[in-house]
Measured scan of single mutants.
Amino acid sequence: IRCIGVSNRDFVEGMSGGTWVDVVLEHGGCVTVMAQDKPTVDIELVTTTVSNMAEVRSYCYEASISDMASDSRCPTQGEAYLDKQSDTQYVCKRTLVDRGWGNGCGLFGKGSLVTCAKFTCSKKMTGKSIQPENLEYRIMLSVHGSQHSGMIVNDTGYETDENRAKVEVTPNSPRAEATLGGFGSLGLDCEPRTGLDFSDLYYLTMNNKHWLVHKEWFHDIPLPWHAGADTGTPHWNNKEALVEFKDAHAKRQTVVVLGSQEGAVHTALAGALEAEMDGAKGKLFSGHLKCRLKMDKLRLKGVSYSLCTAAFTFTKVPAETLHGTVTVEVQYAGTDGPCKIPVQMAVDMQTLTPVGRLITANPVITESTENSKMMLELDPPFGDSYIVIGVGDKKITHHWHRSGSTIGKAFEATVRGAKRMAVLGDTAWDFGSVGGVFNSLGKGIHQIFGAAFKSLFGGMSWFSQILIGTLLVWLGLNTKNGSISLTCLALGGVMIFLSTAVSA
């Protein structure tokens, strides 16, 4: 259960009878995928790494000078000259100064003066180019299975845990398959586009800190620079940016070097996208990844198990997540596992009318040892309800109150669905055939309105939902006002479609 501690969480529900669903994975976010007769899966884009970055340009932001020398000439005696002028490691300046009897010249006039100092770069920052084909995306998957609280967001041991898996995709191999043991396998067909235009970005490294910066900004930095990788004795261009020549006297000129420019660069980098280094690879934390999940090989585990009949206890007080759902960790005293956990939410304890829904599909106890633990997640209705676990006299209950409203949740879900469709863009549509167009249209309606429909009408039977949709269509056909007619027709059509397409 990876997503319960992530604030940016998206719930995606598969269409009834569908074998695939489109998701948008982004750094700092987590996606929970639910479908009829399929286990619930949490998917998170953990890291995006980039390798084989080529150094484009380096800037010196802290330097020192040494070996200063000057040469001067009297008027009419030609130009002052130093051998160091031809050495690229030196920074030199030529000027004219007033000369006369007082400073060793027989004539009054302008004399030539040249001053040089050896330039040494102490600290530099480097910009590297990123090729999209060198990106690698690491995705962690977790099935809502027989897990306890100690396994949440624990990325170790996934090789031997059938509840978890790690997959890596690249532009050259965008397809992967996550093996989930008894739950089958989940196929991923990803489109490795981060949403960032790397043709316009460089990877900047300064003092063990890293950013993504725009090329134009990078090339306009007014500091000494050299092109390409460091060859040991780089040729620094624009050395004068960190060196200041003071007022010249008759035979000498003082040279000083400016202080470190790291603070000024940090100020200019305010708002830039931060990154990290992992050995020789860069780690990015921006952008998104679009994936199509193929769920035809994914299956529920323990459908044929019998119900657990022994007593359950709450190991922890049920807690609310950031998303309005409830996490419950229970301990089973029996030894008759594997068995299914009898769990439901009810409005009252007399009729036990089921409300809400299970995020953890078909929760089971897989071990036959005593005191096995299991964590599950529920989506309670707004208002008061009861969490009921167990059967008969051994069942345990917990009162729950959820604040908020169904309308607010439906609106929030619609906005999130619209954002998801905007990110998917043209990849969500198939114009290759008439059937493809209608299929894409259905998927689009489901992406945007599916979660809201589930919130508003999830407790009704599909037949009642179709009746309401048919009534809206009838009202649309018999209303003389054009805008009201079109609105009723659209709402009725969407409702009829979703009542037959969205899983219960």
Rank of each mutant, 00 (worst) to 15 (best):
K123S: 12
C339R: 07
T427M: 13
P363A: 14
S368I: 08
E216K: 13
D67W: 12
G408C: 08
V255T: 00
G302P: 00
G425W: 01
Q331W: 05
T327E: 04
A428V: 14
S260T: 13
G436R: 00
V355T: 10
S306Q: 08
M375A: 13
A250R: 02
T479F: 06
C3Q: 06
L352F: 03
V153D: 13
R99A: 07
G383K: 11
I221S: 02
L293Q: 11
K419W: 08
A117V: 15
G78M: 09
H266Y: 12
T369M: 04
M68Y: 01
V257F: 08
L204V: 09
G279Y: 09
T160I: 05
T309V: 13
L107Q: 04
C488S: 12
S7L: 11
L471P: 11
F457M: 13
T95L: 08
Y137G: 02
M295W: 12
V169Y: 07
T156F: 03
N439K: 15
I468P: 10
T325A: 10
K209D: 07
L258T: 05
G150F: 01
C116S: 07
D161H: 12
G334Y: 08
E276M: 14
A264M: 13
V153W: 14
K301G: 00
L376T: 01
F463Q: 04
F497I: 12
H446M: 11
N134S: 09
H446V: 12
A428E: 01
G184N: 08
A69G: 09
K373A: 13
V473Y: 04
T233H: 13
G145S: 14
P224R: 03
A264H: 09
S461Y: 11
M460C: 10
V423N: 07
L273G: 01
I359E: 06
V415D: 07
L273F: 13
E216A: 04
T126H: 00
M140L: 15
A241K: 15
S455D: 13
C121R: 10
F198S: 08
D83M: 05
A361R: 00
T179F: 14
G29C: 15
F411K: 11
K409F: 10
K251N: 00
D189G: 12
G228C: 05
M421E: 08
S385T: 05
T76N: 03
K209F: 08
G356A: 02
W429Y: 03
L456F: 13
I43K: 10
L352Y: 14
A178Y: 05
L188E: 07
T48P: 04
V167Y: 03
A35S: 15
W101N: 05
F11A: 03
A311E: 06
V303G: 01
H249R: 10
G459E: 09
G263V: 00
P380L: 10
V213Q: 07
E136K: 08
S483T: 14
H266N: 00
V56M: 09
T40D: 06
A311D: 09
P363Y: 04
W217T: 04
G450K: 12
V33H: 05
S499L: 01
I359K: 13
G5D: 08
R9W: 11
D98K: 09
R138K: 12
L376N: 05
W217L: 01
A452L: 04
W20R: 10
Q253D: 09
L376Q: 03
F438S: 07
W462D: 10
S483W: 06
G356C: 04
G29S: 15
E370V: 04
G356K: 05
F431C: 14
A117I: 04
I139F: 06
I496N: 12
H323C: 13
R99C: 09
F314P: 01
E274P: 08
A501C: 13
G127Y: 05
D430M: 12
E276Q: 03
R193Y: 07
C60Q: 06
E162N: 03
A176N: 07
F285D: 09
I468R: 00
L293G: 00
R357H: 06
D200E: 15
G337L: 10
G78V: 04
A428Y: 05
L289V: 10
W462T: 13
E162V: 00
T487Y: 10
I496T: 05
K110M: 10
K340H: 08
W462M: 07
